[in-house]
Simulated assay, not measured.
Amino acid sequence: MVQIGNIHLGKAETAERPKLDAGEAFILWDLLLSRYDIIQKTQIYQNFAHDPDLKALLAQGLAGVLEKQVNVLEKEMNTFNLSLPSRPPKSMRLPDVSAIIEDEFMFRDVFFGMQGFLDYHARTIRSFTTNDKLRAQLINFAVDELHLFDLMVKFGKLKGWLRVPPFVL
């Protein structure tokens, strides 16, 4: 037992067990599986990319956002004793067939994927009504994704890969 002044704090068994409903459990599993797929695709694109800036941006997305989110999601899945989806290999090394896929195509595929995932974040956040801690974590994921999306928009404009619709005068 821990004592702070006149306050006595009980052992951990007196703490309330975290709650998670079935829908939230599925969303955690689906988010983790999506991250695994995105990591694998990003690793493939890193192998195909010619542009060093694009390679750096993909590496930043992997290490700065995706891998961190996977670690958090795996930890939460373990906290609730949920089965983890099969994880892809840690890295992807492919033969040099980089002439098959152009850098602009890879950028646009990642960009459109991020746009879709921003919508998915909003839908999943509003579904987490039981577990406040996980809802807050998903909000943090969405904020990280928004910052990365902003970087992608600026990068796409700089490279001329972000197709801007014509202006009306």
Rank of each mutant, 00 (worst) to 15 (best):
F141G: 14
F167H: 10
L57A: 07
Q69V: 04
S83P: 07
A122M: 06
Q137H: 07
Q43C: 09
R163F: 12
K159I: 13
A15V: 00
P166S: 13
E24S: 00
R35P: 00
K133W: 02
P95R: 12
P166K: 13
K41P: 01
E145Q: 14
V153G: 08
P95M: 08
Q69M: 01
K133I: 05
S98T: 09
F105S: 13
D144C: 08
K75W: 02
E76T: 08
K75I: 00
L33E: 03
D109I: 03
N140H: 08
S91N: 05
S127P: 01
Q60N: 14
N78I: 04
Q60C: 06
F105L: 13
L151A: 14
G5P: 02
T42N: 14
R135G: 00
N81P: 01
A22N: 09
K159H: 10
G116C: 08
G64C: 05
L54R: 02
D21T: 05
Y45I: 09
R163I: 15
K159M: 15
Q69E: 15
S98H: 15
K133R: 13
G160W: 01
L118S: 15
I44H: 05
L94T: 15
S127K: 13
P95I: 03
V65N: 10
V153C: 14
F167I: 10
E13D: 08
G5I: 03
Y45M: 14
M77D: 00
L31V: 04
A63T: 15
L151W: 06
I100E: 15
D144K: 14
L148M: 12
